[in-house]
Design a protein around this nucleic acid. Structure first.
Lengths: 248, 248
DNA sequence: GCGTTCGCTTGATCCAAGTCAACCATAAAT
DNA sequence: ATTTATGGTTGACTTGGATCAAGCGAACGC
């Protein structure tokens, strides 16, 4: 729940201003394809917004599921924890993407969602979303597409983890980030990584040293310029070539 | 589309007999939790049944998506193909499970579904399913759970591929099969593998030789008895222990 | 019945990535 | 400004699983 604010009127105004209907992510997010009138009905539903500070959990594995979350701004990771202490990052999510879909199946979240930078999310009560999507066909269909897209994405990761070698994995990862930044109007060639080498490694099934070496190698070969978290892609095609190079 | 049958009346009768409402998989499959009246409405929708012979494709990557499929009997694998020829098995599906969910996102199938034994499926036209689930809340919710469960399953596979060693992967795989056979009323301890060592390896991100060696090792250690595709689990706890043994 | 094929097993060798360890860079804390 | 902590890089060495190769058993076609 969002905290009390010293100037309540101002908050109310700002909530109205940040409704789906004038959110600049609406073409990436859940409202995709809705009419103005439908958008306003969705606005009613997406009433709770919340800030999540860097390092804080949006939700934890095991907590009761009752809402999905749309990222308004910021950057998250999700990870799962095995009993024996091993964990794995299952994804990195950015503005316009949804978090929490895995919780529907058991009514409990099955992973942790942690902000990698100060972020803002919109909470969408799930039962109300189901209600509205029974009335708005477009919303229903788009929601199904979003869930399906998540399944397709996961298959891509399985492919990556199952068949690619270290450098291919990192190349695929960088290209994927680049493409998602582009879709959000940022530079496709230059960005800051929000996650550590260890988190990248966990996601890609590699150790942090291997990730670091691959970064260095890409730099040596002129594909990218890296300094810590700052990455500049110098040769997209070089990276792409790396990926389908070795038929294993 | 199903082929013409010499005795049409008999087919019609058999279609009626194999409706969701008296399918013994209804508690595992899409109809879960529906009332008798709702079940009958679902029956109307699931009109097409089809046999798929061992080795045949139910659908191929790239084909237009317009239905999801429930497995009535038999066994399938799904796999994705990379441009450079590499492929990976993304899952094995058995009776009561759904195929094709990945196709919703782009209106095209993104993987191949191939029968590993002679099988029978029910085709569920997707737009009609959406229509009905706008009317039947229980169906809508259950469908969302099924999609979400697929996402959770995929996270499990990511975990397996990203953090587990070869023997842990195979142990996890065998325990998962065992548990699913149990849920279908089969023995949890004894079953025939429908897939080859190579297909298991592809799914687990291992080479077939490694899979074979792991099987041999499990046998030496008394966890299982294997002969070709016939597997008997002798020590479930032994397998479970293998999984969480090494903290990596 | 007999060869052919396909899938499985096992051994020997090799290599990509993991492990261990030292050191460096940047940012926060005092 | 100096210390401390955290994250990143690099090198030396090890190892789990891949690769290469040979042989075997069951199933199928002729």
């Amino acid at each position: 729940m969002s905290q009390a604010h010293p100037l309540n009127q101002e908050v109310t105004l700002s909530v109205i201003k940040t409704a789906c209907s004038n959110c600049n992510l609406r073409e990436l997010c859940l409202p995709y394809g809705l009419s103005q009138e439908e958008l306003e009905r969705l606005d009613d539903l997406v009433s709770t917004r919340r800030r999540v500070k860097r390092g804080d959990h949006l939700y934890r594995a095991g907590e009761v599921f009752d809402a999905i979350y749309a990222i308004r701004s910021g950057f998250f990771k999700t990870d799962v924890l095995l009993e024996d202490g091993r964990d794995q990052v299952t994804g990195f999510q950015m503005a316009g993407e949804l978090l929490g879909l895995d919780g529907i199946s058991s009514e409990h979240h099955t992973c942790n969602a942690i902000a990698l930078e100060d972020s803002e999310i919109c909470a969408i009560p799930f039962s109300r979303l189901e209600g509205l999507s029974r009335e708005i066909h477009t919303l229903q269909h788009h929601f199904h597409k979003v869930m399906s897209r998540e399944i397709v994405r996961d298959h891509g990761v399985m492919m990556l983890l199952g068949t690619m070698r270290a450098e291919e994995r990192l190349a695929a990862f960088l290209l994927n980030l680049s493409q998602r930044f582009t879709a959000r109007g940022f530079s496709h060639a230059e960005f800051y990584l929000r996650m550590t080498r260890e988190e990248i490694g966990s996601y890609l099934g590699l150790k942090l040293e291997t990730v670091s070496r691959a970064f260095s190698r890409f730099q040596e070969e002129g594909h990218i310029a890296v300094q810590q978290k700052h990455v500049r892609i110098l040769n997209v095609n070089g990276l792409k070539a790396l990926m389908s190079h070795r038929p294993s």
